[in-house]
Design a protein around this nucleic acid. Sequence first.
RNA 1: AGAUCCUUGGUGCAAUGGCAGCAUGGCAGUCUCCAAAACUGCAGGUGUGAGUUCGACUCUCACAGGAUCUG
Length: 326
Amino acid sequence: MPDIPERKTASADLPPLVILTGPTAVGKTSLSIRLAGELGGEIISADSVQVYRRMDIGSAKILPDEMQGIPHHLIDILEPTESFDAFRFRELAKEKAAQIHARGKLPIVVGGTGFYIQALLRDIHFSQQETDEAYRQSLWEMAERDGAQVLHEMLRKADPESADAIPAENIKRVIRALEYHHTTGQPISVHNREESLRPAAYRACYFVLSDVRERLYERIDRRVDEMMEAGLEGEVRGLLEEGVTPEMTSMQAIGYKEMVPVIRGAYTAEEAAYRIKRNTRHFAKRQLTWFRREGDVIWVPKDRYGYDEDAILRELIRQVKETLCS
RNA sequence: AGAUCCUUGGUGCAAUGGCAGCAUGGCAGUCUCCAAAACUGCAGGUGUGAGUUCGACUCUCACAGGAUCUG
């Protein structure tokens, strides 16, 4: 395999890390507990919703009983009114990984937020100086007032390469590119290119658990039905009552954003269940697209192991020992 | 049984007798601090059979299927 050789060589002295990801509802959680048990690991959650307290049912958060004594990090660390992003994830996860290494344990990153995993593994440098909330806000207002095209033309003057790469309709990314240029004087396209060359920060085993589309969709449908039965509506109602608003990052998660109109009487719980299933399917598809694009991942298709979790576990352990202990 | 109306991508809807569009779903993709977010692309259709016409989703007839009303 003519893979980038220097990355492999350089990785010899890097701290080890196991990543277990895959599309939502594929079965990461139960496998992760057994893997951590076998390898003496602690789990770092890479999940943009499970960071929030009291968002348990809709995020399919692991229950304390199910942890079986395995320490879990970055779950329940924020109030649902707080915002979170890939920069903060990287900072926290890096710190947790270092602490776990110091205890002589193996950090196992488990979760479906591919972007967070990328930020950690590739050690993408975001710096606090690159943000300017007030400027960002003024750009949003401008977008609403004058339209997306005006912003895109601003970007074209400041950073033509990014303007070519980002469609005007994608206001969020146009604003981020303008903000970056505004605060650093540099085009974000240059920054992105530099960061993309950065070697991995860990010696990692990057597993993507997958399944045939049909089975995955069946699991999603079943899980959403279980969430409804478990009282998702009550969970969302409680969050709204405590002052969480639909605009907040936490409430834009699948399962939450669809439930708000039910509570407000705009449509039925059945309609919400239908939408949650549909949006979760779309999400799972996007996750698979993301992982396909990531190099250096080890695909673990459940169907190829006959849906035998013992066999999958043995294979993961074998791979980890081969890659991280050599 | 009779009368009236209806039949267009998987689904819901458009289209003076003149290039069959939209939404949604499906599939594929983008992504370097809101990522469970934001965004892009592709495929797919006139119920069947005749007729009128230079030309039919559109007009006529038959058939099939559906809806409503009457008995």
